[in-house]
């Protein structure tokens, strides 16, 4: 499996991902790796409903995604991988998924989070995981859409006084 693009987006598969990014990066398949969505028939069904015709999409747990990543049958599959948060990126890496850079695209604000851009909020747990990803040499880029500005995510965390 070739991960053409790894995006953190708490809405997982939605218009920006299924119509814009997937065409921009040239992936044939979208995988949303998320434990709770994989177990939730309604959410899973709604997520699979988003992806247009010829794009294949899957909603699977993080563990199963890592197993499929290693399956030689998918060696040549171009994948856009979406996860909900940076902790799940770490879990993928810990299970052998090679990750060089991560597009931090959208994390919806919830109680206890800090808003750091129009589309991204972070929880204390997210900050910890971002720091760990940075330590492991993963490039973290804040960018919502292919044609909107991109910036270094760790600098943003610093400027917000979160690290």
């Amino acid at each position: 499996m070739k991960i053409k693009w790894l995006r953190i987006d708490s809405r997982l598969i939605h218009g920006q991902v299924a119509n814009n990014w997937v065409n921009h990066v040239g992936a044939s398949t979208i995988i949303a790796a998320n434990d709770s969505a994989a177990k939730d028939d309604l959410r899973k069904t709604l997520l699979l409903q988003v992806a247009p015709g010829r794009t294949k999409s899957y909603v699977m747990s993080v563990d199963k995604t890592a197993r499929c990543y290693k399956n030689p049958a998918y060696e040549n599959l171009d994948v856009l991988l979406v996860v909900e948060n940076p902790t799940d990126v770490l879990r993928l890496i810990d299970q052998g998924v090679e990750v060089n850079s991560v597009n931090v695209g959208g994390i919806t604000f919830k109680e206890g989070m800090t808003l750091i851009s129009e589309a991204v909020s972070v929880s204390p747990q997210d900050v910890k995981s971002f720091v760990e990803l940075d330590k492991r040499g993963v490039k973290l880029v804040l960018q919502q859409l292919p044609n909107t500005a991109s910036s270094d995510f760790m600098s943003r965390l610093k400027s917000k006084g979160l690290i």
Binding site: T29, D41, L48, Y58, M60, Y74
Partner: peptide, 19 residues
């Protein structure tokens, strides 16, 4: 949805095959 749910619920969480 009723049609989709039947399809989904047959998908196993085990193994290393997409789905």
């Amino acid at each position: 949805f009723d049609e989709q749910q039947m399809v989904n619920s047959t998908r196993a969480e085990e193994g290393d095959e997409l789905g």
